[in-house]
Design a protein around this nucleic acid. Structure first.
Lengths: 348, 348
DNA sequence: GCATAAAATAGAAACGTTTCCAGAAACGAT
DNA sequence: ATCGTTTCTGGAAACGTTTCTATTTTATGC
C-alpha cells in the first residue's frame, strides 16, 4: 500500500508522472507538449517518449483554468430537430472540430427565457465563442447579456443593432421577390404570405421581397392575406386554415420558414386542398426531399451547409483576432410543380 | 493603480472577492453556495447578499477541476442533419439541461476513425456520461475505448457485447414483420429489402422481422432481393436502381433507415417508378412530413422523441449510481397510400 | 458552572495545468 | 581565461474552486 510505484491501474497519469519518468521539471513537460520554441532537441525526445510510454493526456480543465482558453464554442439553436438547422449544425461542427474546437449545443425551443438562461450557462462555461440563431432581435438586455459573454458572437439571420458581432444573413428578399413575381405573372393576385414575427430580420427581408414584387408588377398587395406572427407549425396551420376559408380565398401561398411550411401543408391537407392544383404553393426554405416526393414543391432555397461553414469560419476568424463581418448568402427561387394550379380554368 | 478598491470594470469576480466583502473565509462562501448543511442562518444571509451584490458566478472550470464533475454529457451522432437524430438530440438535450447538464455534440459522419477521435476528445474533457449512436458494433478496441472514458454510456440502437452500458433499442422486427406480412397478404412475393450493415443491431433486428414474416406466410423469401450494406443515401439509391432494373423486378420495397429511404426515393424517381402505383413502398423510420406530403408513404414508425428522453433518463440514472439497463421502444407499421400498387391489374 | 458534545467557521491543502522568473549551461568573441 | 549573450531548464506562483482538518463557538445535560 505505501508503495506508489505499483501499477495504480486507473489513476490518471498527470504531468508530474511524466516529469518524474523523464527526470525533468514539469515546466519542461508543458513546454515540450505545447510546442514552446525554447526547448532542446534532447529534451523534446526525452519528454515525448516518457509521455508516450505513460499514455499521458493533459487534463482539459486544468489547462483551461490556467490558460483561459476553453476550446469550446456555444451553439444555441431555436430547434435542432428542424432539419434546416440540423444541416447548419452538422457542417458547423465539422469545421469547428477541424480547428480543435468542440461544440456545446443548446436548444432555446423558441423561448426567450430559456435562451437567456442558456447564454448565462455558456458564460459560466467560459466559451471561446458563440454561434446563435436567436429567438428575437430586440429583447431588452440582449446586448448586455451577449457582451458579458466576453467572446465573439456570430448570429444566424439576425441583425442586433449596436452589437459588435458577425452575422450570416440570407438574401431572402431576392428569392421571395422572384417567386412572387412568377406567381403574379401566372395570373395570381391573391397571394397569401405567412411567416414569423417582423421583429427578426428573416421576416422583414422576406416581406420586403414580397412587397417589392407587387410594386414592380404595379399591383397593390393584399394586406389581409399577409399573416406574420410565429415561425412554428401551429401558427402556420391555423393561419392557413383561416386564410383559405375566407370568402374570397387566396389562389396562392408563400410560407416562410420550415415550421410555417409544415403547418401550412398540414392545414391545406385538412382543407382538402392540393398544392399545384387547388392553389399554387411556394415554400420558403426547403424540407429535405422536396425534390423527390411525389408532389413536388417549389421553394425559395438557401444553402444550409454553406451557412454552417461560413458561421464557423467567421467565428474562428474573430477568435484569432479578426473583425466581425457580415456574410450574405444568396437565395434562389426553385420552380417545381406546386407553382402551378389555383386558377380556375383560366388555362382552358 | 495600486488601489484595488477601484471599480475594476471587467475583472471577473471570484470567490475571494465575495469572501472579502462578506468578511468571512472563502470556504464559507463555498459551503453556503453549494448548500452544505453546516451553515448558520446568519452566515447564509451574509454570504448570499455579498454574492448577489457582486454578481458572483462560480468559475466552471475551477469547480470541475477540483470536484471532478463536469456536468457535461458527450453526444456522438452519425449525422445530426438527419432529422430523426435531430429529434433525438433535441429531446435529449432538453432533459439533460433540466438536470443541469450540458451537451457536447459531435458528428462522426459515419466514419469509424472520426468516431474514435471524438471519443478520445470527450475523454480528455472528462465528460460525466456519453450517449452515442455508433457507426458499428464490432470495432476492435471499441470496448476498451469506451471503458477508458470512465463514465456511464448509453447506446442508441446498438448492442456491444461485453460492455456494461445502457441501451435504447427499438423493437424493429415487430414493425417490419407487420409491414412485410401486410405486403405478402396483398399478393406480393418479390419484396425487396434494403438496409445497412448486419454488423449493427438495427439491421439484424429488421432482417429478423422480414424473414419471420415470410416464414409465417409459408413462403421462402427472395434472397436476391435483400441488399444489406450501408445506411447512406448513395447505397440506397444505387441498390434501388439495381434491384428495380432486374429482369424479374420486385413489386414492393422496404427501405431501412432514413438514409436508405432518401436514396430509394431518389432512385425510384429516376427510374420513373411511382410508389403506391408502380410498386408498393414502405419506409422504415419516417421522414418528417410523411403524413402530409401529397404522396403518402407507409412506414415502420418509432418515436424519436421518446428515444431521446429515455436515453437522457437512463444516463442520468447511471450517473447517480443506478445500473445500466436496456429499454425497448416499440415500432408500428403505419399503412398509407404507398402500400398499394405494384401488382399488375390484379385488382381489376 | 462545568464538562462534553455538537455545530459552525477559518485556514490550508489539494486539483493539474501554464507561465513567470531566475539561474545554469552553452557559445562566441575578445 | 573572461565576459556578455543566448539558449535552455527548474522552481514556484498562479488559475478559482472544493474539501479536509483543526479550531472556535454554541448548545446540552447534569
Amino acid at each position: 500500500m505505501p508503495r506508489s510505484k505499483g501499477k495504480k491501474s486507473s489513476a490518471p497519469v498527470t504531468i508530474h508522472d511524466v516529469a518524474e519518468r523523464a527526470g525533468v521539471a514539469i515546466s519542461s513537460i508543458s513546454r515540450v507538449l505545447s510546442g514552446h520554441p525554447d526547448v532542446s532537441e534532447r529534451m523534446r525526445i526525452k519528454v515525448q517518449r516518457a509521455a508516450d510510454e505513460l499514455g499521458y493526456e493533459p487534463d482539459f480543465f486544468a489547462q483551461s483554468l490556467r490558460s483561459g482558453a476553453t476550446k469550446t464554442i456555444g451553439f444555441i439553436m431555436r430547434d435542432i430537430s428542424n432539419p434546416f438547422f440540423g444541416v447548419i449544425a452538422q457542417c458547423c461542427e465539422q469545421e469547428l472540430r477541424k480547428a480543435g474546437y468542440s461544440m456545446l449545443l443548446m436548444n432555446s425551443d423558441g423561448d426567450v427565457a430559456t435562451e437567456s438562461t442558456n447564454i448565462a450557462q455558456l458564460r459560466r462555461r467560459k466559451i471561446d465563442g458563440l454561434i446563435a440563431s436567436l429567438v428575437s432581435e430586440d429583447i431588452p438586455e440582449l446586448n448586455s447579456t451577449l457582451e458579458k459573454l466576453n467572446a465573439p458572437v456570430v448570429l444566424l439571420d439576425r441583425e442586433v443593432v449596436g452589437l459588435n458581432s458577425s452575422a450570416i444573413l440570407a438574401n431572402h428578399h431576392q428569392g421571395v421577390e422572384d417567386a412572387t413575381l412568377d406567381l403574379i405573372s401566372r395570373g395570381h393576385k391573391r397571394i397569401a404570405f405567412i411567416s414569423g414575427s417582423t421583429r427578426v430580420y428573416t421576416t422583414r427581408d422576406r416581406l420586403k421581397g414580397y412587397k417589392s414584387a407587387f410594386k414592380k408588377a404595379g399591383v397593390t398587395y393584399p394586406t389581409e392575406l399577409v399573416s406574420l406572427g410565429k415561425f412554428d407549425a401551429e401558427f402556420g396551420e391555423s393561419e392557413t386554415k383561416r386564410l383559405f376559408t375566407l370568402k374570397d380565398r387566396p389562389t396562392a401561398l408563400l410560407s416562410g420558414g420550415i415550421g410555417s411550411t409544415a403547418g401550412a401543408m398540414r392545414g391545406l391537407k385538412k382543407l382538402g386542398l392540393v398544392p399545384g392544383k387547388d392553389l399554387a404553393f411556394v415554400a420558403i426554405d426547403e424540407w429535405p426531399m422536396f425534390d423527390v416526393y411525389g408532389q413536388q414543391f417549389s421553394s425559395v432555397y438557401r444553402d444550409a451547409a454553406m451557412i454552417g461553414r461560413e458561421a464557423a469560419a467567421a467565428l474562428l476568424e474573430m477568435i484569432s483576432g479578426g473583425s466581425p463581418r457580415t456574410i450574405m448568402v444568396e437565395t434562389h427561387y426553385i420552380v417545381r410543380e406546386s407553382s402551378t394550379g389555383g386558377l380556375k380554368a383560366k388555362k382552358k
